[in-house]
Design a protein around this nucleic acid. Structure first.
Lengths: 223, 223
DNA sequence: CCAAAGTAACTGACTCGTCAGTTACTCTAG
DNA sequence: CTAGAGTAACTGACGAGTCAGTTACTTTGG
């Protein structure tokens, strides 16, 4: 039953070396926490899902919270890693946004449990608080992306740049929130084509960026 | 200590008529659930905060979940009520969005505990599931707002209208997510002027609506 | 080559604190 | 003087964390 390793032999072979077991437990815990959320997940659930006793779990992790934190940190590391790798190598801002959206959709598709865990616990300081970090990092990654070129522009006066920074800071939660919301929405509506959702998100967010760039006032309300 | 009713007398006066006590308990429970979240809130916390015994709580509400559901439903009713009242009376779409944003900022400011409760439990089907309803209602309110005028436009072909409906459906999570995210962000950054945050949200969302209206493609990436 | 000694993986059955919900009673306002 | 507002003290179940032991694997002296 060990789906992590390749051994699909049904009624046999249990014992694993420490490291491999640990990996398996982390994977199983991720799935459980993602599905049920921190509070509704019991250590016995995790143990049962790994076909292992609860006591063994406690030989690998000192507490439930410890386990959760470890799982979260792995997710944060993975996601920020992907974002840094994919987004920062883009030259153009538009491409940067496209890459960001793509990474998020990819991750949500490939690791739905991890995504569920992140979404569920993002706004809850109660446990671990490692997830808030992710939000901050996403936010700064955004802001950097928005401001990179302008910061490097010597023609821009310091005052103008400062104004831009302020606007960017306000833009971040808007873009950030819309992207996360879109990904979650898309996951719950599998009938919607991914490209449509993705494209829509890119366009939507890009408008905001464009808005920052041009800095013009809005056209008067048409009615 | 009864902040709900006006009686601020410290060490005295207890007995209340049933209905008033119930209201007080609902208010206190709202605050507790909002602050700590469902799972970390104990019935004793609520009772203590109301300066009342736990048993009394159970004379008014049959279970913890019941209490939570009742609190949630009051919030949902209040918020959707405000939105319907304020948003639907606006003629212009831009004004509709402005009203929507204003209502959300108002509510979050006036009832921070209720807002925290909503935000915390919005993505958690585990308890009550009445909060998902709010998201749906907000979503449809949005879509209706976006499409009202176009639906009424006889010059629009059915096919074009259908295309619009599809686009609108995709736009909803983006706008919805950005607005909620912005409000929450602003609550955590009290140094930021509300008007700035609010205005930014309105502009951001309106661009998306405008995008729907015109339906044009994006300008080519500038770099 | 292979027993016996050694060790790391693993478990069943517990403890102990916590918390939703109850019971049997007291008090006070009308 | 009584109905119903209120409470202190209790219970039962659940769930995190522990421990004394068992089982599978590895090593080593003969």
């Amino acid at each position: 039953m060990t789906n992590e390793t390749g051994e699909a032999v049904p009624g046999v072979r249990r014992r694993m070396p420490h490291a491999r077991r640990r990996e398996q437990l982390l994977g199983v815990a991720l799935a459980e926490f993602g599905r049920r959320g921190y509070h509704l997940t019991q250590m016995e659930h995790v143990a049962a899902a790994a076909q292992v006793s609860k006591a063994l779990l406690y030989q690998h992790f000192t507490s439930k919270e410890d386990l959760f934190v470890e799982v979260s940190e792995a997710i944060v590391a993975e996601l920020t890693g992907r974002l840094n790798a994919e987004v920062l190598k883009q030259q153009d801002s538009m491409e940067g946004i496209r890459a960001m959206v793509r990474v998020l959709f990819d991750y949500a598709t490939e690791e739905p449990d991890a995504w569920a865990l992140v979404i569920r616990h993002l706004d809850k300081p109660e446990v671990g608080l490692g997830l808030r970090e992710l939000r901050e990092r996403l936010g700064t990654a955004f802001a950097d992306l928005l401001l990179r070129r302008r910061r490097a522009d010597p023609a821009l006066s310091p005052a103008a740049l400062a104004a831009n920074e302020r606007r960017a800071r306000l833009l971040v939660p808007l873009m950030y929130g819309s992207m996360l919301s879109m990904v979650s929405w898309w996951l719950e509506h599998p009938d919607t084509a991914r490209e449509r959702a993705e494209q829509m998100a890119v366009e939507f967010v890009w408008l905001g960026l464009d808005r920052l760039r041009s800095g013009e006032r809005l056209p008067a309300p048409p009615s």
